[in-house]
Design a protein around this nucleic acid. Structure first.
Length: 430
DNA sequence: TCTGGGGTCCTAGGACCC
DNA sequence: TCTGGGGTCCTAGGACCC
């Protein structure tokens, strides 16, 4: 049995945690750059605001209904996500963190969980709420896909009180009948219309479709989803997913950037940040990929391009990575366009401890390791941005920063932002 | 005026080998 | 007019997820 534990309206719940006055009030959280709506409290969902809606189109409606709007505050969400995971691990040995707000729990290793999974999950849910203040819903099923489907029902049907177990075999059909094909985990907005045209309109229909036929008309992915709906595990529990294969840092700019100098600063910043993540994973990058683009919307002239460079020996050294990124930029930058977004991706990642050498060249920089350790240590100890490459520009003069008009304090990760609890006037402290 | 960011996996087609 | 058979590896593009 798999359980899928999913935090309710996660980012909105995080924002409410330190603002009890927002309980039962509409709360929306925006993507980076205050671009789109990416989290909605139930009140905002009830207004009919879709996931991913551009904020500028909803702004009027939000003002009218008094929706409390937040820019995304990832330090806060990541910290609370870790607390939720820790709470889960305190009760369940096998936890697979699937995303910032979801985790699969494997029920069969723990005898008390296997005996009555649904009752056990009730305890899990209570503990997470009690320890972190974040409400979660839990769906149970024989496969991850069925647990996902069960989770939907747990969320949608208030009478389930946040827990639903998908029954086995044919008994599941009456529930799967109520799930639109487009809402099945693994069926996206491209294949859903195609499946519908072929008469497969619900989760139940996909479950009973002929496997060979699905495989022919689609790919192995859709065939697996169909098998999973039949209770056959195709996506096994994987507690420790391997190291990442790509690391990507990209941002849209608050205002379009036209100057090469500003772009160099931004690219340096992205490359610096990617290199930091890379070392955190203990990996080294074999290639670097840089891309930039103008806005895909509106009538302004458009330009988009990308460049890739390969390192002779995989590296995790910031100066190597920033240097190559800037060389890539020289290759594709064209004067005169209003650039709206750019980014850096590190690929061909290898284990940093066991690097393949270069056949014809001896490349040894013994100081490199300790220099990067010092940089990471300083930035860890004294805060991000304590040391950085000069090419990133001076912090307060960067023109390419993103818009974040409604950001909440970093309540749990920054000393200056810690909430203070003041005693009432004249009260005696014990 | 204003439209996010970060991932994984699969497939088809091309290039190459003997 | 006629031109083999059996492989591997790489890449770009497309699909999906949150």
């Amino acid at each position: 049995m798999f359980a899928l534990c999913d935090c309710n309206n996660f980012y909105a719940s995080c924002e409410r945690l330190f603002r009890p006055d927002l309980e039962r009030r509409p709360v929306a959280v925006l993507s980076n750059n205050d671009g789109c709506v990416i989290a909605r409290s139930s009140e905002v969902k009830a207004l009919g605001v879709p996931m991913g809606a551009p904020y500028f189109r909803e702004e009027g409606r939000f003002r009218h209904f008094g929706v409390e709007v937040f820019s995304s505050n990832y330090p806060l969400y990541e910290d609370l996500s870790r607390r939720v995971t820790d709470s889960l691990r305190s009760l369940v040995p096998d936890v697979e963190v699937y995303s910032i707000d979801e985790a699969f729990l494997y029920m069969d290793t723990l005898p008390e969980a296997a005996a009555d999974p649904s009752e056990f999950c009730r305890r899990v849910r209570e503990r997470v709420l009690h320890w972190t203040g974040i409400p979660v819903s839990i769906g149970l099923g024989e496969t991850k896909t069925l647990a996902k489907a069960a989770n939907r029902i747990a969320k949608k049907d208030p009478s389930r009180e946040g827990i639903f177990t998908m029954p086995h075999g044919e008994e599941a059909d009456r529930y799967l009948e109520g799930i639109d094909i487009g809402d099945v985990w693994g069926v996206g907005f491209r294949n859903a219309p195609k499946l519908r045209r072929l008469g497969v309109r619900t989760a139940r229909a996909l479950k009973h479709a002929d496997g060979e036929w699905i495989r022919r008309r689609f790919t192995i992915c859709e065939a697996r989803t169909s098998r999973e709906l039949n209770g056959l595990v195709c996506f096994p529990f994987t507690e420790a997913p391997g190291p990442r294969k790509t690391i990507r840092v990209s941002r849209s700019f608050g205002d379009p950037v036209t100057e090469l100098l500003s772009l160099r600063e931004a690219i340096s910043y992205f490359a610096f940040s990617a290199a930091e993540t890379l070392r955190g994973e203990g990996s080294a990058a074999g290639k670097i990929h840089l891309f930039l683009m103008t806005s895909p919307f509106g009538s302004a002239p458009r330009y988009a391009n990308a460049a890739t460079a390969r390192f002779d020996v995989p590296t995790s050294c910031t100066t190597d990575i920033v240097g190559q990124a800037l060389k890539c930029l020289e290759r594709i930058f064209v004067e005169g366009y209003p650039y709206k977004k750019a980014g850096v991706a590190l690929t061909d990642l290898a284990d940093g401890a066991h690097l393949q050498g270069h056949l014809f060249r001896e490349i040894k920089k013994p100081w490199e390791g300790s220099l990067m350790k010092a940089v990471d240590h300083l930035n860890m100890e004294f805060g991000r941005g304590t040391v950085y490459t000069a090419s990133m520009g001076i912090r307060d003069r960067r023109s390419w920063v993103m818009r974040r008009g409604h950001v909440s304090p970093r309540y749990t990760t920054c000393w200056e932002d810690l909430p203070s609890v003041l005693p009432p006037e004249g009260a005696q402290l014990p």
